[in-house]
């Protein structure tokens, strides 16, 4: 018998999951479950949407209405679901390649519309499922199977990208900072509008190994020692923030929400 939380929110028959030993995704998936438990939401009223990649397998493990869609398109599927059923809590779980490369267009446009959904990014800085190619969040200079001489691409800051595109809530958590990440996911779900919680995961199998940064323990120790809370970071200089990862709530704005706006269109059209 697993822990009560797991028993309630995971499809036990499909566990243990396929993720590698020490993969941060399992921790983050538990954070999502804990956030939903803390909010006391009805499981039948939650649609969990994922794309393709390591992170997307979460949809098969979590016991909600779940849909594992095509690569990069989770937010677009979720947009249709939310517009068809505005009463549903729509949660997207996506990876960094999934959401910021192939699905980048959907991310910025859903953020621009401020449609009510919560996107939880499991960001492991690498394409894991295909074996360790560099992703849009792989830091410059790092190594990957398709960056054998070092990555010359500059990485995206997914949370900042979403905020700039119009998301009304953005935050960043990590696999190490579980209580904080749970709190941020809760805030994101409760927030009316497009919310994005970028969660720094760890990929010991490809990212850690390729970059000689160690296993999960070393990667999570880095998170423990190098993260700065957003309220503290506000008072720090650019130099002081060099090499640090800012975590916590990053932005919260009051923009009109898309499905609410569309309700008004229906009222207008029916007059």
């Amino acid at each position: 018998m697993p822990a009560e939380l797991i028993n309630k929110y995971m499809r036990e028959a499909h566990l243990p999951h396929i993720w590698c030993p020490g993969c941060g995704h399992g921790i983050l998936m538990r954070d999502v479950a804990q956030a939903i438990e803390d909010l006391g939401l009805d499981q039948n009223k939650i649609c969990l949407v994922s794309g393709i990649g390591c992170s997307s397998r979460a949809a098969g493990y979590m016991d909600f209405n779940t849909i594992h869609t095509t690569h990069g398109r989770a937010i677009a599927f979720a947009t249709g679901i939310k517009l068809a059923r505005p009463d549903m809590n729509v949660i997207v779980i996506a990876g960094d390649g999934d959401i910021a490369a192939i699905g980048g267009n959907h991310l910025i446009h859903a953020a621009r519309r401020n449609i009510d959904m919560t996107v939880v990014v499991f960001n492991n800085d690498i394409y894991g499922m295909t074996g360790g190619q560099f992703s849009p969040t792989t830091p410059t200079g790092d190594f990957a199977t398709t960056a054998p001489y070092g990555n010359i691409d500059r990485p995206f800051d997914i949370a900042a990208l979403a905020e700039a595109a119009g998301a009304s809530y953005t935050a960043r958590g990590t696999a190490y900072h579980a209580p904080l990440t749970i709190k941020l996911i809760k805030e994101g779900i409760e927030h009316k509008g497009f919310s994005l919680i970028e969660c720094a995961s760890v990929c010991p199998t490809y990212y850690g190994r390729k970059n000689k940064k160690g296993g999960s323990v070393e990667l999570m120790t880095w998170q423990k020692e190098n993260c700065v809370m957003s309220d503290k970071a506000q008072h720090m200089s650019k130099e002081e923030l060099e090499g640090k990862l800012v975590i916590g709530r990053l932005s919260e704005k009051d923009y009109p929400e898309y499905t609410e706006q569309y309700k008004k269109i229906i009222e207008k059209a029916r007059k």
């Binding site: 849909i67 869609t69 095509t70 599927f77 249709g80 679901i81 939310k82 517009l83 959907h106």
Partner: peptide, 13 residues
């Protein structure tokens, strides 16, 4: 692409 995805999402819903 997203139009097709949204259509499938709505139908599933």
């Amino acid at each position: 692409i997203s139009s097709m995805a949204a259509v499938i999402g709505a139908s599933v819903a």
